[in-house]
Amino acid sequence: MAKKVKYKPKKIKLCASDLVLQIVTTILLFIVLLITLYPIIYIISCSFSDYIAINAGRVVFWPVGFTWSGYEYVFRFKDIWVGYRNTLIYTVVGTALNIFMSMLCAYPLSKRDFQGRRTYMNLFFISMFFGAGLIPHYLWNKTLGFINNPLVMIIPGAMGVYNMIILRTAFRSSIPGDLFEAAKIDGANEFRSLFQIAVPLAKPTISVLTLYYAVGHWNAYFSAMIYLRDKNLWPLQLFLRGILTTTEGFKPSDASNPTPNPSGGSSTQIADNTLGAKYALIVVSTVPVLILYAIVQKYFKKGVMVGAVKG
């Protein structure tokens, strides 16, 4: 082996109290890691386990009696597909609108010499501290004809004021003002400066906001529960609510009978079959969000810091 010489900066020897502190904090970090990861690992293990093993309480860490049947059961369930499709539509369209609106709003407000900036800003600021509450919103949306209308998942939440302010801060602090001046001299109008200068330069913040918005859309269930009655419009979370937050097993309500066990006659047996599927469903519905987080993760540090510190 070739000898490698590492040049390490000479470390200052820790004094006893600092050493103890290091040991204690390291132990605490491991404990935090364990507490966070253990429930997640348990759920994933259960989703791959045989329902008999789950029922007998034999799954504690690793999957027992490895099987894909939970996942098979989930994907044969028609409602899940409908929910997945709807959630995907709401998330993509809703997030795109969110980002567009936030850009439109954040850019003028980031201009220091924009006349009327104060007034606009107050309009948005006040809304963060004082809201009308559930019922007046419900009544107004009803008046607008949003009951049982998929637009209710997109339009009323077309922008998040807090996220917009983060973007405004990013526009203001990460882009030198001279750049806009130069663009103006070269004949760019404001729209062009926004989409060709400000937006590309604020990319880290915009990707983080995309994550925030998309996660919000993906996880929303309450407004769907209030406004949407037609099951074909339901997002995934609303179907999940019916399946996960009841103690009974989920039984196929639609025509295509997904029961993998044809000999199972009694209803308790069907419930047993669906036990692993519940865990599988938890995994299946959360993974897309985590994938998105993993993609955005590299922008994370830069993007979050800009808005967060100055908030």
Binding site: P39, I43, W218, N219, Y221, R241, I282, S285, L290
Partner: peptide, 10 residues
């Protein structure tokens, strides 16, 4: 990133 519904399910 776990949704409220899934969290209560868990």
């Amino acid at each position: 990133f776990i949704s409220t519904v899934v969290m209560v399910g868990i």
